[in-house]
Design a protein around this nucleic acid. Structure first.
Length: 709
DNA sequence: GAGCACTGC
């Protein structure tokens, strides 16, 4: 047992109050809530007209209880009379399901042509909303009401109300630049400020000020930022819609928190001892803290339950990298005299909803990836959350009844937090967005209608990167190569790899590897006790990967998995090699999609090159080098690596197959992240001569290479 | 010899 654990048990036995919380002076929070989700109703079967109508009538009673329904006429008056309307409503208001239906009725009533698009940041949300609204509307999904997300399109010529991811709407913007198909576009969850929603807002503004003066826009957001949306759209009117509210009391820590995991475990014990039944949701910044908290909890909980008459605490982790089966555990209720405690990352803040939660404990921290444009490097930082985020986390305690939120920081700390989370676009690589704008023939990128301008430095470096990838010409206009890159559903570097692969006739293996790199966590981290064993197995299986590195190994593993006939055997094989089966299936889908795009793009049948010989492997690696020339490093005499571009020290990430291999003269990597130090991920071995062949590399880099030979 | 939050085409 860890020392933290034993101290805690002692404290519990003495019955000492371990956590000096103070009752907050501040106002009770009004929290937000998602729509109830009838799992049974999510079935995908086609129903007859009468049955559909009957069900829709049943649902109408429920719909009429929504606050938006009671204010329907007033809301619709605003929407009819204004080209742009900003709708602020908490998530229990039913705005995402009801408003689009009101608008649809209006379209039919007024005989207006065109459809309604409702964007969502996430795929599941788009699918669930469309399914729900189709039922309310009394049709099957894909008829009048449908959805469109990557790999799944449920729309038809009948569809007038379409829920789609914002990535999908951007794609439609690239293809049909005026969005002629739509008379109304609704941007939902705009407050989340994803890069893609921000881009859509910019495009919509240029549309209504230009070729689409008739287009109606509704921006829907949960609380705050209303003025920013309003002033962006020429002071559009703002409407507030009430949500369903349960109160959540907030408590703060009386002193600064020293060890967040320790404090959180103590707080759980205190709730377990002193509060009524109800599950606890704990927000921690990352996997490391979560695994630690779960381990401590599961050690001490049985002792505490044995010695005192309190519920047995059952601790469960939740983060995106967790296998689906383990993720599913947090959704099933615990039976008996037990209390479920979920330790989660930000995933439970917006993406995932757990029922039964009555208490929230908030560490006030999150992990954030910040892009350093100059270095072409991502840093991963643990930072304090914003006040908006704290409110959102708090709201998770009161979805079903009144709840309590314990914040592991002082009220004074809370008051110092920034109002809003910094929008993603301000800390991201904007190469891909800039390529989109260029594809849209925007000449002046810096003065475009940005909802949030990412800044001149970011834009200039993105333009430079695109120029180096030959997506732009000397005049800064998009080239035909750039147009091809913009069409592929990939980051520009990866698109560049595929175009080059086509040129030197090794498209098929390149697609496989790009597909592997497009999913997260194809290779899982083996648990420490199995690590050596799994590594051995992988190395034994992947002879080419052993020599050339991670990219080639992924290709080998993907090929092996594809050759297995039954899903059951494949699942077992994945387990043996600690490979994600879910990721494998996604790779197969992406491979299919990329293959289709390439056939269309290059107007040819798939080539037949395989990865049999060494020359082909070299060729494939050189394709990647064409997209990732900047992501290379050279081995120094002391065996460390330094980046070719800036001479920064860089280490091969321990998750790489080449981690132990000290014999690479040079390396290429698809990702450069800074945590404790600079790490190269997805590493491939290079020969120095290959680096010298790269035209785009600067003279300094070449000098380094030569002097090192 | 270390350990990456989340999402999208």
């Amino acid at each position: 047992m860890s020392s933290t654990g034993s101290i805690l048990v002692k404290d519990q036995k003495r019955g000492r109050k371990v956590h000096p919380f103070e009752r907050s002076e501040s106002k009770v929070v009004e929290f937000v809530e998602n729509l109830p989700n009838d799992e049974d109703e999510l079935e995908n079967q086609r129903l007859g007209r009468n049955e559909l109508k009957r069900r829709a009538n049943e649902l109408l009673r429920v719909r009429k209880t929504f606050p938006v329904h009671q204010n329907k006429e007033e809301i619709m008056k605003y929407i009819r009379e204004n080209q742009v309307a900003i709708l602020i409503g908490e998530t229990g208001s039913g705005k995402s399901t009801q408003i689009p239906q009101f608008v649809l009725d209006d379209l039919y009533a007024s005989g207006t042509r065109g459809a309604i698009a409702v964007t969502q940041p996430r795929r599941v949300a788009a699918i669930n909303l469309a399914t729900r609204v189709a039922q309310e509307y009394g049709c099957n999904v894909g008829e009048q009401v449908g959805y469109s997300v990557r790999f799944d399109n449920a729309t038809s010529s009948k569809t007038r109300l379409k829920y789609l991811t914002d990535g999908m709407l951007l794609r439609e913007l690239m293809m049909h630049r005026d969005l002629k198909e739509y008379s109304v576009v609704v941007i939902d969850e705009a407050h989340e400020r994803t890069v893609l929603t921000d881009l859509i807002l910019g495009f919509l503004k240029s549309l209504i000020d230009g070729p689409r003066p008739d287009l109606k826009i509704i921006v829907m957001s949960a609380t705050l930022q209303a003025e920013k949306f309003s002033s962006f759209f020429h002071n559009a009117p703002i409407l507030f819609v009430e949500g369903r509210k349960f109160s959540v009391d907030q408590y703060y820590l009386g002193h600064a928190c020293e060890d967040v995991v320790d404090s959180m475990v103590r707080c759980c014990c205190q709730i377990n001892q002193g509060e009524q039944m109800g599950d606890i949701l704990c927000f921690l910044p990352g996997q490391e803290e979560i695994d630690k908290a779960v381990a401590i909890m599961n050690k001490i909980a049985p002792c505490i339950a044995d010695t005192t008459a309190v519920p047995l605490m059952v601790a469960l982790p939740l983060y995106a990298a967790l296998p689906p089966a383990q993720q599913a555990l947090v959704f099933s209720p615990v039976k008996g005299f037990k209390r479920k405690i979920v330790f989660s990352t930000n995933i439970a803040e917006t993406s995932v909803t757990i029922s039964g939660v009555k208490f929230v404990i908030d560490s006030g921290l999150r992990k954030v990836k910040v892009w350093r444009h100059q270095l072409g490097l991502a840093t991963l930082l643990t930072v304090p959350i914003s006040r908006a985020s704290a409110m959102q986390r708090t709201g998770r305690a009161g979805r079903e009844s009144e709840g309590k939120c314990f914040r592991l920081y002082r009220e004074a700390d809370y008051n110092q937090l920034p109002q809003q989370t910094e929008p993603e676009i301000a800390r991201s690589d904007v190469t891909s967005p800039v390529l989109m704008l260029k594809r849209y023939d925007i000449d002046d990128i810096v003065n475009w209608t940005w909802f949030e301008n990412p800044g001149k430095e970011a834009l200039v470096l993105a333009l430079q990167q695109l120029y180096e990838l030959q997506a732009l010409d000397d005049a800064g206009k998009i080239t035909s190569r750039g147009k091809q890159m913009a069409l592929l559903p990939l980051p520009p570097q990866m698109s560049s790899v595929l175009i080059h692969a086509h040129e030197i006739k090794c498209l098929s293996p390149a697609i496989d590897i790009v597909a592997c790199l497009s999913v997260d966590n194809f290779l899982l981290n083996p648990p420490p006790e199995l690590r050596d064993e799994v590594n051995e197995r992988r190395l034994a299986l992947c002879s080419a990967g052993k020599k050339h590195g991670d990219l080639i190994m992924m290709k080998e593993l993907f090929d092996f998995a594809s050759q297995i006939n039954t899903p059951r055997e494949r699942l077992e094989w994945c387990k043996q090699l600690c490979v994600s089966h879910r990721a494998y299936k996604n790779i197969a889908k992406i491979k299919q999609q990329l293959t289709n795009y390439c056939k269309h793009l290059f107007k040819q049948e798939q080539d037949e090159l395989t990865l049999d010989t060494n020359t082909n492997i070299t060729r494939v690696i050189k394709c990647f080098l064409s997209g990732f020339a900047k992501n290379t490093a050279i081995r120094m005499p002391d065996r460390s690596y330094r980046t070719v571009l800036t001479g920064e020290p860089i280490s091969i990430h321990p998750s790489s197959l080449l981690f132990l291999n000290t014999h690479c003269p040079a390396i290429m990597y698809t990702e450069y992240v800074f945590t404790a130090k600079g790490y190269a991920r997805n590493v491939t071995r290079l020969e120095l001569t290959w680096l010298q062949e790269i035209a785009g590399l600067g003279a300094v880099a070449k000098q380094t290479i030569t002097s090192n030979e």
